[in-house]
Design a protein around this nucleic acid. Sequence first.
DNA 1: ATGACATTTGCAAAATGA
Length: 256
Amino acid sequence: MKIATYNVNGIASRLPRLLEWLEGSRPDVACLQELKTATETFPASALQAAGYEAVWVGQKSFNGVAILVRGGAPIERIRVLPGDPDDTHSRYIEAEVGGLVVASIYLPNGNPQPGPKFDYKLAWFERLIRHADTLMQEGRPVVLAGDYNVVPTDEDIYSTKSWLDDALLQPQSRQAYQQLLAQGWLDAVRHRHPGERIYTFWDYMRNRWPRDAGLRIDHLLLSPGAASRLVDAGVDRDERGKERASDHAPAWIVLR
DNA sequence: ATGACATTTGCAAAATGA
């Protein structure tokens, strides 16, 4: 069973790329982020024609998350991260898929920092940590996949020089990520490729893709029950080099 | 403090996000 996470950076403008990738990489489950379209304008029929049923929650212009399942349908559990009734951002959706619990996560970017956007990021992260704990208590196999907007360590970036003040590298962001992992989650891609330079995001600006100046910020976290079934993990880097590509590449795992 | 890029809005240049 192949499960992928892909920040598409606008599903409307990226639909041809997305469909090509689905056909080529053939994930059984695809968690998408940054749909950047309203719930009503999600291209469900185009995805259905490609063999995928979906659950999604959108929002005009930004955010938006979805879970796609090939040859089956995800059963939605929740479409709001618990803990703040005033939060209007579409950043979380969770579904049951073939005995697994799968979440598609778009954690706030948090720039500029310090400031209200960074405060929102950390508060959102705390809510995620609380909710992840309740999922862990359920004792079922869980995959938390998405754009975490956190570079976990200096090994996960080409160079920290231009990014030291960025929200993605702040000690508070990294501590929150470590706090989440400490509950018992496994960072699947890093686990399968210790010591390797692996990136999932290359900024459009400053020639960062041609220079391979990347960051690893898209992660698949596995509960122990899912981790024991892990057989492979990787990143479809080539997607980033295509015409009108997202600034992210898909990351994926294979579970037994 | 600004702009580097990509896209949308709305039909030019500005705003938005990251």
